[in-house]
Amino acid sequence: MTKPIPRFIGPTVVVLAVLAVAFAGAGGMFVGERVYPLFGVGALFCLCMILVFEIILSGFVTQRAMISLAAGHGALMGACASLFFLPGSGLLVLLGYTSGGAVVGAVSFWWYRVRHSILTDR
């Protein structure tokens, strides 16, 4: 059974996701400049804060919803990595990194659940 999710989590995660993509995109435009690492740190900070909310949500949603959240977070990380590290490489690369990030996020969460079930003997 799921608990009601606090109302502040949704808008906060959306704002952090938009900021992460904005920081990653701006960092891709300033490659080689002195501010380039600052945009990377800004994107990383926003992605870590989204991860904190994902951990908080683990007590409110089902396991099926958690694998979807992990895939979504992985897709966002893949999009940010593509925008930051490979600027101007095209839409196909952006879609590839985004879908690859979603797959990696879902598989890593599934692997965590497998290890957790083995260690707790469920």
Rank of each mutant, 00 (worst) to 15 (best):
G27W: 14
A106V: 03
Y36W: 14
A22E: 01
A26K: 12
R122M: 11
I5P: 00
A20T: 06
S68A: 11
Y97V: 11
S108I: 08
S117H: 10
S108Y: 08
L57A: 04
G105K: 04
P4T: 05
G42W: 10
L51E: 04
V31R: 13
V104L: 15
I55W: 10
G59Y: 11
G100P: 03
L119C: 02
A20H: 05
C48H: 07
L95W: 13
A70V: 06
M49I: 06
R113L: 11
R115A: 14
F23E: 05
V104M: 09
L44K: 01
F30M: 09
M77D: 03
G96C: 12
M77I: 13
L119M: 04
V103T: 03
G78I: 10
M1R: 09
H116Q: 08
R113E: 06
L16N: 04
T98C: 10
R64Q: 09
V21P: 01
L83C: 07
V18R: 00
F39H: 01
K3L: 13
C80W: 12
I55K: 05
T12W: 06
G96T: 14
I5N: 00
G78C: 12
S99W: 13
Q63H: 11
V31D: 03
T12Q: 05
F84V: 06
G25R: 10
F84Q: 02
A102E: 01
V52G: 00
V114N: 00
I9E: 00
A75I: 09
L57N: 02
L76Y: 08
A106S: 03
G59H: 11
G96Q: 12
